[in-house]
Amino acid sequence: MAMTDIIERPVLAETDETGVPAQAPTAFNTSNSGFVIHRSGQIRHEFRREGREFALELAGFLNKPLAGKATIVVFEELFGQQDRVHWVQHFKNPNDYHVILDLVDHDKTFKDITERDRLAEGGGGNWERMFTEGTFSERVIVPQHGVGDHDDDDDDPTYFADPASHQTTVPEGELLHTGNAGITIMRTAHCKYEFRDEARQFAYEWANHINNTLRGSVSAFLFEETFGRQDRIHWTLHFKTLNDYLKLVELGKDETYKQILGARRVALAKGGGSWEKTFVDGTIQDLVLSPLRSGTTASGF
């Protein structure tokens, strides 16, 4: 199984009622969604296999009724917390979350997935025993608005926010994202309140340069947190392979890249300074994710 074949994609009939080949519904990801819910939970080590299979089965089931509205992709941490899984839920609009709520209340298959005995040899139980108490958390992020230079005529009112693909001129077919990348890094940073605009402008320019310079190997999108921490921004960095991270490191030799990093972002009247002055010290953090695959673990044991 390829690294990107990590969820059961929605399936349609091969042809519609007229005999014309049916068009598959859009699979959503970080490049084309308007609202993203990032949910994570810690699996107990003794149930690491069962917990992973539950995470994949649940996402695979939900993606069918969500087809055309949302797509859920499952990840695990690489070089991070062992046995922590991440469901990244990509929506056009948060109103479509009602599909999941309806399934929770009324669907027999959902009830079977979440309640049947998955731990017959381990004392019985389902997900509630597989995961460590109190470790489930959610974060909502949306594509950063007010950046990029896309045509307003392209705006789709069915989206909560313009998708991140509007932040770059790279064609959508060439972008890497949560649906096709081998490695995804979630990088977060807390902007200083007084320099919130300057920090976002730097964040956009940095990501845009990566998209243009490392086209086909790395893609970067800018998001901001919603219903959470004020002025915390998120870059989603998508790499074709782990080796492509070295290409990002090598950008340090690029003159344009150096100019972006060295440009004055803070007015002299406020003390001057480059991007370093626009973020709260110690708040830039990376979370490295790899697609969760059935029967394997990123740790190797």
Rank of each mutant, 00 (worst) to 15 (best):
Asp152Pro: 15
Ile72Ser: 06
Phe54Pro: 03
Leu78Lys: 12
Pro143Gln: 13
Asp162Tyr: 02
Asp83Gln: 10
Ala70Thr: 09
Phe47His: 15
Leu103Ser: 07
Lys92Met: 13
Glu46Gly: 08
Trp87Ile: 00
Gly148Tyr: 07
Thr114Gln: 09
Val88Ser: 05
Val73Pro: 00
Asp156Cys: 02
Asp117Tyr: 01
Thr178Tyr: 01
Arg116Met: 08
Arg116Asp: 10
Asn93Gly: 02
Asp105Gln: 15
Phe136Met: 12
Glu76Pro: 08
His106Glu: 08
Gly179Met: 10
Asp112Thr: 12
Asp153Gly: 11
Leu175Met: 14
Gly51Ala: 07
Glu174Ala: 08
Ile72Arg: 05
Arg116His: 11
Ala55Arg: 06
Thr178Ala: 11
Ser165Tyr: 12
Asp151Ser: 10
Gly146Phe: 01
Val85Gly: 02
Phe47Glu: 04
Thr71Lys: 05
Ala70Gly: 09
Glu138Met: 05
Glu57Thr: 13
Pro94Asn: 04
Arg118Thr: 06
His86Thr: 08
His150Gln: 07
Thr132Leu: 15
Phe61Leu: 12
Arg129Glu: 14
Val170Cys: 07
Trp127Asp: 05
Glu57Trp: 03
Thr169Cys: 01
Gln167Leu: 04
Asp117Ser: 04
Thr109His: 14
Asn95Ala: 14
Gln89Asp: 02
His166Thr: 12
Asn63Phe: 01
Leu58Pro: 00
Arg48Ala: 14
Leu103Tyr: 07
Glu121Gly: 02
Val142Phe: 01
Phe160Cys: 03
His90Asp: 01
Val73Ala: 03
Val99Lys: 08
Asp112Asn: 10
Leu103Pro: 01
Leu103Asp: 06
Trp127Ile: 10
Leu101Lys: 12
Thr135Ser: 15
Thr158Cys: 00
His145Met: 06
Pro65Ser: 08
Val170Glu: 11
Gly179Asp: 11
Thr71Tyr: 08
Val99Cys: 06
Phe47Asn: 09
Asn126Ile: 04
Arg49His: 12
Asp155Val: 03
Pro94Glu: 09
Glu53Asp: 15
Val85Ser: 05
Pro163Phe: 15
Leu119Thr: 03
Glu138Phe: 07
Met130Val: 10
His145Pro: 04
His150Phe: 15
Asp155Ser: 06
Asp112Lys: 14
Tyr159Ile: 00
Asp154Met: 09
Gly60Ala: 09
Val140Ala: 02
Phe91Ser: 04
Thr71Cys: 05
Tyr159Asn: 08
Asp102His: 10
Asp107Met: 02
Asp156Ala: 04
Arg129Leu: 10
Glu138Ser: 14
Asp83Lys: 06
Ile113Asn: 12
Leu58Ile: 07
Glu172Phe: 14
Phe91Pro: 01
Lys92Gly: 00
Ile113Val: 11
Glu77Arg: 13
His86Pro: 06
Gln167Cys: 03
Gln144Gly: 05
Thr114Pro: 05
Phe54Asp: 06
Asn93Gln: 11
Val147Phe: 11
Pro163Gln: 14
Phe136Trp: 15
Tyr159Leu: 15
Gly146Val: 06
Arg129Pro: 00
Val88Ala: 09
Pro143Asn: 12
Asp107Pro: 03
Gly124Arg: 10
Pro94Ile: 08
His166Arg: 15
Arg129Trp: 03
Ala181Phe: 09
Asn95Glu: 13
Phe79His: 12
His150Cys: 06
Glu115Lys: 13
Asn180Asp: 07
Thr158Glu: 14
Phe75Met: 03
Thr168Trp: 10
Gly134Gln: 11
Gly60Pro: 05
